[in-house]
């Protein structure tokens, strides 16, 4: 009796909640965004877009690979209109599966060719440079090698940190393979591995460990240093940028695309255009310490200019062989 009543109540509650959830969407134009970037980073931009366009933005936040995975599993019945992720690689993979719709040429043209898909299916929104974070107490400027190759020197044995599972790290390895060839990339990985780097789960924990002096240097993205500084937790960490052409200084992008099959493609495109506006680009420069991709907007004064940074000599769209990188890292027993 009780059991049946409980069961009935549970079913009724589920149906009621499902109905409620289904009804809430019918009040004016709205967009659904799958975001691999967190609300802390991009939420204010969606609020601003809502205020200026009158279009409500519903956002599902998640890990970049996970929201991209959801897009792939949903297939030709997408729930989202716009996909925003941390890594150009994910956009490439989603595009390879035929899930991205073409963007208008005017929007695509705002972004330099190396930071977008050649067919105009996705655009970069903000750049992040690969750097080496080092501890200023244990490493002097003079000790730092000029290129990322220098870290294979045995004097770095036991002093390095890396995060081989991290998407940005893997994109850097892919760029290394594209720029300098599979053999050189493999030689570099073997060289660093021989120096017995400490393995970390992500960039932020490397920068924090560098700041505390647990390790002397680590391979990371440039902006974590500034975010940790804002919380007063950067310690003695500092960034070393690499010269143009060095794969160690690859500039990757977080980017966006409109989903194939979205019934609100026009509004979805408006959102992507808004994210490329000067206002949004300034937001990335000032609030997330990233590099604006639109040339007319300046980076934060603490950062080198995106033009002076490694002009990567590789189009991010070429970095689509993530599987090859995972296989290489697996074969070398790094993953």
């Amino acid at each position: 009796m009780l059991l049946r009543r409980t069961l009935t109540a549970a079913v009724a509650a589920t149906v009621a909640l499902a109905t409620l959830a289904g009804c809430s969407g019918d009040d004016g134009p709205s967009l659904t965004v799958y975001s691999g970037r967190t609300a802390d980073l991009v939420g204010p931009l969606f609020d601003r877009f809502e205020a200026t366009s009158g279009i409500k933005v519903k956002v599902r936040y998640g890990d970049s690979a996970e929201v991209s995975g959801a897009v792939l599993e949903e297939g030709d019945r997408p729930k989202a209109d716009v996909l925003i992720v941390q890594d150009a690689g994910n956009l490439g993979q989603v595009n390879d599966a035929g899930r991205l719709a073409p963007l208008p040429q005017a929007a695509v043209d705002k972004v330099p060719a190396e930071f977008r898909s050649p067919a105009g299916r996705w655009v970069g929104l903000s750049g992040r440079s690969r750097v080496v974070a080092y501890n200023t107490d244990t490493v002097s400027q003079a000790d730092l090698p000029a290129t990322v190759d220098g870290f294979t020197d045995p004097r770095w044995k036991g002093r390095l940190a890396w995060a081989p599972t991290n998407g940005s790290f893997q994109a850097f390895v892919t760029a290394f393979r594209v720029l300098e060839g599979q053999d050189k990339a493999e030689a570099w990985l073997r060289g660093i591995k021989a120096n017995e780097p400490r393995v970390f789960p992500n960039n932020i924990s490397i920068v924090e460990a560098v700041g505390k002096g647990e390790v002397d240097a680590g391979f990371v993205n440039h902006y974590y240093l500034f975010r940790l500084r804002a919380e007063g937790r950067a310690g003695k960490a500092e960034n070393k940028y690499f010269p143009a052409g060095d794969p160690g200084g690859l500039v990757n992008v977080a980017g966006a695309g409109v989903l194939q099959g979205s019934k609100k493609a026009a509004d979805a495109t408006r959102l992507v255009e808004f994210l490329l506006s000067d206002e949004s680009q300034r937001y990335f420069a000032e609030r997330t310490f990233e590099l604006p991709v639109v040339p007319s907007v300046q980076a934060d004064p603490q950062l080198p200019d995106i033009e002076k940074l490694a002009k990567p000599e590789v189009e991010l769209a070429q970095l689509d062989d993530a599987k090859g990188t995972v296989d290489l890292l697996t074969r070398l027993q790094i993953l």
Partner: peptide
């Protein structure tokens, strides 16, 4: 997780 996150290799 690595296999999935690294390359979306479902």
């Amino acid at each position: 997780y690595v296999q999935y996150r690294g390359s979306l290799d479902r």
